Simulated scan of single mutants.
Amino acid sequence: MNRYDKPLPVIDAYTRGYWDHARAHRLSVQACTQCGHRHFPATPVCPQCLSEALSWEAVSGRGTLVSWATFHRAYWPAFRDDVPYHVCIVQLDDGPLVVGNFADNRLPDDVRMGMALRVEFEDVTPDISLARFVAA
């Protein structure tokens, strides 16, 4: 693990479950125990039924590329060496849309909307593992 100098997430009561799963290299989404609705990112109540009964469920980490963008400007100084970097929107097979990055800041060889992706994790600190996507 190299020194990671980019902004890190703030882990709080709402997001702790996600980061615990990520540290174990499992992608997870928040799920309502009342109506079963899965969503991401974390919310204090279910966006469908407004229940406060929420939990974190591991999902397969497989999905479909909906879109991506290439950033040519570093909005934080720590990203300067990564420009251009790529952000993707993935429709999970068993859950909601998630926003992420491609692994190793590389676009897959035949990148196209609708391509199958799967999650991998990058351990950036002893407590934080970040989800990254690669061609499935």
Score class of each variant (00 low, 15 high):
residue 7 P to G: 09
residue 59 V to P: 02
residue 104 D to P: 04
residue 60 S to H: 04
residue 124 V to E: 02
residue 66 V to I: 08
residue 115 M to H: 03
residue 5 D to F: 08
residue 45 V to R: 08
residue 101 N to Y: 13
residue 73 R to N: 13
residue 13 A to W: 13
residue 129 S to T: 10
residue 128 I to K: 12
residue 29 V to R: 00
residue 119 V to C: 02
residue 31 A to T: 04
residue 84 P to D: 14
residue 125 T to E: 05
residue 35 C to K: 04
residue 83 V to W: 14
residue 38 R to N: 13
residue 103 A to Y: 10
residue 131 A to G: 05
residue 50 L to N: 10
residue 49 C to T: 02
residue 109 D to M: 12
residue 62 R to V: 10
residue 30 Q to Y: 04
residue 32 C to T: 01
residue 46 C to V: 07
residue 106 R to C: 11
residue 68 W to I: 00
residue 106 R to Q: 15
residue 3 R to S: 12
residue 93 D to I: 02
residue 31 A to E: 00
residue 118 R to D: 14
residue 28 S to H: 00
residue 89 I to M: 07
residue 31 A to W: 00
residue 115 M to S: 05
residue 88 C to F: 05
residue 47 P to K: 09
residue 2 N to F: 05
residue 100 G to Q: 09
residue 55 S to C: 13
residue 112 R to S: 09
residue 27 L to P: 03
residue 52 E to L: 08
residue 55 S to Y: 03
residue 64 T to V: 09
residue 114 G to N: 05
residue 15 T to G: 07
residue 62 R to F: 15
residue 34 Q to Y: 04
residue 29 V to E: 00
residue 24 A to K: 13
residue 112 R to L: 04
residue 89 I to S: 11
residue 2 N to H: 10
residue 20 D to R: 15
residue 53 A to K: 14
residue 40 F to P: 03
residue 60 S to T: 14
residue 92 L to R: 02
residue 22 A to V: 10
residue 35 C to S: 11
residue 20 D to C: 05
residue 76 W to E: 14
residue 77 P to I: 09
residue 129 S to L: 12
residue 16 R to P: 02
residue 28 S to F: 01
residue 77 P to W: 13
residue 109 D to S: 15
residue 70 T to A: 14
residue 90 V to C: 03
residue 87 V to M: 13
residue 34 Q to P: 02
residue 124 V to M: 06
residue 61 G to V: 03
residue 102 F to W: 05
residue 134 V to K: 08
residue 109 D to R: 15
residue 93 D to N: 12
residue 33 T to G: 10
residue 18 Y to A: 06
residue 62 R to D: 15
residue 61 G to T: 07
residue 23 R to P: 01
residue 87 V to G: 07
residue 72 H to C: 09
residue 15 T to Y: 09
residue 56 W to E: 06
residue 111 V to C: 04
residue 49 C to D: 04
residue 3 R to V: 15
residue 38 R to D: 08
residue 7 P to H: 08
residue 39 H to V: 01
residue 62 R to K: 15
residue 82 D to P: 06
residue 70 T to I: 06
residue 38 R to E: 08
residue 68 W to L: 00
residue 94 D to T: 02
residue 135 A to N: 12
residue 45 V to E: 09
residue 57 E to W: 05
residue 21 H to W: 05
